[in-house]
């Protein structure tokens, strides 16, 4: 299995809005976070939803975002975070 990103890498979630069955929530599209876990490879749900095999499998990551990065007006402590599972093809490197 080959991962493009390592745990600790900074990544940005793509900001696109393609049609179809997308598992990337809107509120983190375009946001920058850190790779927290690498979960393995899974069949692509964007294809599975339309009866296709979903191959090749896609690496899946748990990405953690600072709440203040996701919601500019966030009122809680700066340490608060939100994490989501994101497939590799929805990520790009960030600095």
């Amino acid at each position: 299995m080959s991962y493009r990103y390592a745990v600790g890498d900074k990544v940005r979630v793509l900001a696109g809005d393609p049609p179809g069955h997308i598992r990337t929530p809107f509120y983190i599209r375009g946001k920058t976070g850190v790779v927290e876990e690498r979960w393995g490879e899974f069949r692509n749900p964007e294809e599975l939803a339309f009866g296709k095999p979903g191959l090749p499998k896609r690496p899946l990551y748990l990405i953690r975002f600072k709440q203040a990065e996701v919601w500019p007006g966030y009122k809680g402590p700066a340490a608060d975070t939100v994490s989501a599972d994101i497939y590799e093809h929805w990520l790009e490197p960030a600095r």
């Binding site: 749900p45 994490s83 994101i86």
Partner: peptide, 9 residues
């Protein structure tokens, strides 16, 4: 730290 985990996949 409150860590919200969104099970998206």
């Amino acid at each position: 730290e409150i860590r919200v985990v969104d099970s998206t996949a």
